[in-house]
Design a protein around this nucleic acid. Structure first.
Length: 308
DNA sequence: TGGTGCAATACAGTTACCTCA
DNA sequence: CATGAGGTAACTGTATTGCAC
């Protein structure tokens, strides 16, 4: 599975930390559809009655998000409103329509109550700080534009909240999505899209890191190659001008790439088909194996011990 | 038990919009 | 003010998985 491959590539990007955890619980292990029975509890300032769904909630804990602490209404109102076992409210009914057709453009723009609720129903909504940019909560414009898609920039607080959630696990189950949407006063589809885009960004970042690493590997190998070519040329030159002692049994010089010491090896080299030094090296010092996707090259095994 | 349809979700790629230099 | 680059929300298409029948 690609996700697992990605994990293997991880160089320690903090954002991939949860991939191991969330991935196990969600898409990586069970396939694309995250199971309800996640191993990870998810409780963002809310005492949910659904904790049995969290397998005992080993990591179940209250999240100390700024506004959750500042605004107790958030916890109260959310806990009061959010009950997955309740008959769906109008909003949830719309959510049902949304999730049943996640790709429907209409699902994103037909929710006037929700989008407007960001401003209109502030009493029940979390008291987010005023967005730093005036673009947030302009969804009502969409209605005036006849459904043309408008970009709604999330506020800093909303982004921070989503980031925190993403650190916990980079995939969402439906309950978590609903809960987040409620708390952030966003549409569930927006939360879903945000997580998708966030995963894409993480992956992109990781790819860049991998690329840099491979570049360094390549440069190192290039240098090594230059060094060996030079060494080969020197040895050939040495062979081309045989001094007087060439009457003696041939001595093969070889250099250990690990300790970079030249060692002599006299003996059978003087027989019918003397093996070039580099050819011998090839057997003495097998080509280092390259693991391009490994985070760090495998520990070098010194030939003295490896040969034994 | 295997096949099929459906819903839900993930991901890659793309588009559209916004911000900023 | 115009503009291009970069960031990102949102969309589209496709693949995969689990479940019901």
């Amino acid at each position: 599975m690609p996700a697992e491959m990605e994990l293997a590539l991880s160089l320690g990007d903090p954002s991939t930390k949860m991939s191991g955890v969330g991935g196990t619980a969600g898409s990586a292990a069970g396939g694309m559809r995250p199971s309800i029975g996640l191993k990870i509890g998810f409780c963002v300032g809310i005492q949910s009655g659904e904790e049995e769904e969290d397998d005992g909630g080993g990591r179940e804990r209250s999240r100390g998000f700024p506004w959750a602490a500042q605004n107790k209404n958030l916890e109260i109102s959310t806990a009061a409103v959010f009950d997955v076992n309740e008959a769906p409210s109008q909003e949830e009914a719309e959510e049902g329509a949304t999730t049943s057709s996640p790709n429907s453009a209409a699902s994103c723009f037909n929710n006037t109550e929700f989008t407007d609720g960001g401003r209109g129903s502030a009493a029940a909504a979390p008291a987010f700080t005023e967005p730093d940019r005036s673009l947030t909560w302009r969804a009502s414009d969409e209605e005036e534009n006849g459904g043309a898609r408008k970009k709604l920039r999330l506020s800093k607080d909303q982004s921070a909240f989503l980031e925190e959630s993403f650190k916990e696990h980079n995939t969402l189950n439906p309950k978590q999505k609903l809960l987040l949407a409620k708390q952030l006063n966003l549409r569930p589809r927006q939360v879903e899209v945000w997580f998708q885009n966030r995963r894409a960004r993480t992956k992109l970042k990781q790819t860049e890191v991998d690329c840099e690493y491979l570049k360094r590997c390549c440069e190192t190998l290039r240098e090594e190659n230059r060094r060996l070519q030079k060494e080969l040329a020197e040895l050939r030159a040495l062979k081309a001008s045989p001094p007087f002692f060439m009457q003696l049994p041939a001595t093969t010089l070889s250099m250990c790439p690990a300790c970079e010491r030249v060692s002599s090896n006299s003996g059978s080299a003087g027989t019918s088909h003397p093996q070039p030094a580099m050819e011998k090296n090839r057997t003495l010092f097998p080509k280092p194996r390259i693991f391009p996707f490994a985070r760090s090259p495998p520990a070098a095994v010194h030939h003295h011990s490896a040969a034994s």
